Measured scan of single mutants.
Amino acid sequence: SEIVVAMYDFQATEAHDLRLERGQEYIILEKNDLHWWRARDKYGSEGYIPSNYVTGKK
């Protein structure tokens, strides 16, 4: 599975969105859409994140 790191904070506005915290790692579950990826955080929460807010883990 692909691990990404959040470059920016993202506040979830929709129920299906996942909040991003800058510097935290997330697991990508689905990339069915170019701009919104389904991800899981370290607490096990899942939701959609803006793909341009994250970068591949170095």
Rank of each mutant, 00 (worst) to 15 (best):
L20Q: 01
M7W: 07
S51K: 08
I49S: 02
K31V: 05
V5G: 00
Y8P: 00
W37S: 01
W37F: 05
R19K: 12
K57C: 13
A12G: 15
W36G: 05
E30W: 08
L29T: 05
D41K: 01
R19F: 08
G47R: 01
H16W: 14
I3M: 08
L29S: 02
A15G: 10
K42G: 07
E2F: 14
Y26R: 00
H35G: 11
A39N: 02
D9Q: 04
Y8W: 12
R19S: 15
D9H: 05
K58Y: 13
K58W: 12
D9S: 09
I28R: 01
E46L: 04
T55S: 11
Y48F: 13
I3K: 08
F10T: 04
E46I: 09
L20S: 01
N52R: 12
V5M: 08
R22D: 04
D9N: 10
M7R: 09
I49P: 01
Y48V: 07
Y43V: 05
G44N: 05
H35N: 11
R38D: 02
E21M: 08
N52F: 10
K58C: 14
I27G: 02
G56Q: 14
D33S: 11
A39R: 01
H35V: 11
R22I: 12
I49N: 01
S51I: 05
K58S: 14
Y43C: 09
E21S: 07
G47M: 00
Y53V: 06
G44H: 03
M7C: 15
V5Q: 05
K42V: 09
D17N: 15
K57L: 13
L18M: 06
Y43M: 09
I28G: 00
T13A: 10
W37K: 02
K31L: 04
Y43Q: 09
I3P: 04
V4K: 03
S51D: 03
K31S: 07
A12S: 12
E2L: 13
I49R: 00
Y26D: 00
N52G: 12
R19W: 07
S1H: 15
A15I: 12
E25S: 10
I28S: 00
D17G: 14
G56R: 12
G47L: 01
I49Y: 02
R40C: 06
A12Y: 04
L34S: 12
A12P: 15
A12Q: 08
A39H: 01
I3S: 06
E46S: 05
G47K: 00
Q11N: 13
K58R: 12
G23S: 04
I27Q: 10
I3H: 07
T13Q: 13
D9I: 03
D33A: 07
G23R: 03
E2Q: 11
A6L: 03
R19P: 14
A15V: 12
H16I: 08
Q24G: 09
N52I: 10
R19V: 10
I49L: 07
F10I: 05
W36Q: 07
D41P: 00
A15E: 13
A6T: 01
W36C: 12
E14G: 15
V5N: 03
I28D: 01
A39E: 01
E14L: 12
V54H: 02
E46G: 01
Q24I: 04
K57V: 14
E46R: 01
E14T: 14
Y43S: 08
L18K: 00
D17M: 15
Q24W: 06
I28H: 00
W36K: 09
G23M: 05
K57E: 10
R38F: 15
H35P: 05
K42T: 07
A39W: 03
A15Y: 08
D41C: 04
V4L: 06
Y26W: 01
R22K: 15
E25R: 08
E14W: 09
R38K: 14
R22W: 07
Y8L: 10
N32G: 12
V4T: 03
I27E: 11
A12E: 08
Y26E: 00
V4R: 04
E46W: 03
L34N: 13
Y26N: 00
A39T: 01
R22C: 12
G23N: 05
W37A: 02
V4H: 05
S1R: 14
I28T: 01
Y48L: 12
N52L: 10
D41M: 01
Y43T: 08
I3C: 09
E14Q: 13
L29C: 05
Q11I: 14
V54G: 00
S51Q: 06
A15N: 10
T55Y: 10
G56F: 13
G56P: 15
E30D: 14
W36A: 04
E2N: 11
W37I: 04
P50D: 06
K31P: 02
K31G: 04
K58T: 14
F10S: 04
D41R: 00
L20A: 00
L29M: 06
H16V: 08
Y53T: 04
L20D: 00
I27W: 11
H16Y: 11
Y26S: 00
N52K: 11
L20N: 01
R40Q: 08
E30Q: 08
S51G: 06
A15R: 10
T55F: 08
L29D: 01
L18Y: 00
L18I: 06
K31D: 06
V4N: 02
Y8N: 07
W36H: 06
D17K: 15
S1Y: 15
D17P: 06
T55Q: 11
L34F: 09
S1K: 13
T13N: 11
A12T: 10
R22A: 14
N52D: 13
V5F: 08
R38I: 12
Y53K: 08
R40D: 02
H35L: 12
E14V: 09
E21N: 07
I3R: 09
D17Y: 15
E21H: 08
Y26Q: 00
W36E: 05
T13C: 15
L20W: 01
T55D: 08
V5P: 00
K57A: 12
Y8D: 07
I49M: 03
M7D: 06
D33T: 10
M7P: 01
W36D: 03
E25K: 08
G56Y: 13
N52A: 14
I49W: 02
Q24H: 11
K57I: 14
A6N: 03
D41H: 01
G44V: 02
L34M: 12
I28W: 02
H16Q: 12
T13R: 13
